[in-house]
């Protein structure tokens, strides 16, 4: 037993399996609970996973239906082989896969005790390029991989900034049209 514990790679494997592999806590419920507390919104596993009920099961996007080839792409296997850039897990959605690639192993492991680590690790990224950084989206309980999902007020400000020139031209064109129409009256 003592020898087994000394074997670092085995421990790594067990820990990774616990968080990312085929253990019952695959859906990383601590992270979900953390976001729900912060955003006061009720979420489900589809925040990071392909399937709404998480990875355990035999439906599309769940472990039971994965081929051997697909299993090789999971975070667990790619981490083991030291290729985290190649992670393209069919059980994770775009954000889930991004999260695994973006954060290092330690952060993901520590995040079970302190989910805030994940949020901190996402401060400089904006996966969907909607102008709201991913850590804010996580705290708001909005999808970081959907440019149409976000806090409406933040989206308004960011989209005004992004489309400022276009909106100004539209406003000028319509106001000129209104002025010319009113001049027609005289």
């Amino acid at each position: 037993m003592y020898r087994l514990l000394e074997n670092k790679s085995l421990i790594t494997l067990v820990v990774l399996c616990f968080f990312l592999g085929s253990s019952p806590v695959l859906a990383f419920s601590e992270f979900q609970t953390y976001i729900e507390q912060k955003s006061k919104k009720q979420l489900n596993c589809a925040y990071c996973h392909s399937h709404v009920n998480g990875p355990n099961g035999n439906e599309a996007g769940q472990l039971g239906l994965l081929s051997e080839e697909q299993k090789q792409l999971t975070a667990y296997n790619q981490f083991l082989q030291g290729n985290k850039e190649l992670v393209n897990s069919p059980i994770l959605n775009e954000f889930g896969n991004y999260l695994v690639k973006k954060l290092d192993y330690d952060t993901i492991v520590k995040a079970q005790d302190d989910p805030n680590k994940i949020v901190e690790g996402l401060k400089d990224s904006d996966l969907d390029r909607d102008g709201i950084n991913d850590s804010e989206e996580v705290l708001d309980g909005t999808l970081p991989n959907d440019p149409l999902d976000g806090n409406p007020f933040k989206l308004l400000l960011n989209n005004i900034k992004k489309n400022c020139v276009g909106i100004c031209f539209q406003a000028i064109a319509i106001l000129l049209l209104i002025i010319s129409l009113l001049k027609l009256r005289n």
Binding site: L43, G150, N159
Partner: peptide
């Protein structure tokens, strides 16, 4: 025309669905 301008700006800047949380969408 003014109403159209207001609608156009809102439609470009605030996705209507952004008021819903994602499991509902």
């Amino acid at each position: 025309l003014f109403l159209f301008l207001v609608l156009l700006v809102i439609a470009q800047t605030i996705p209507y669905d952004s008021f819903l949380s994602y499991p509902l969408k």
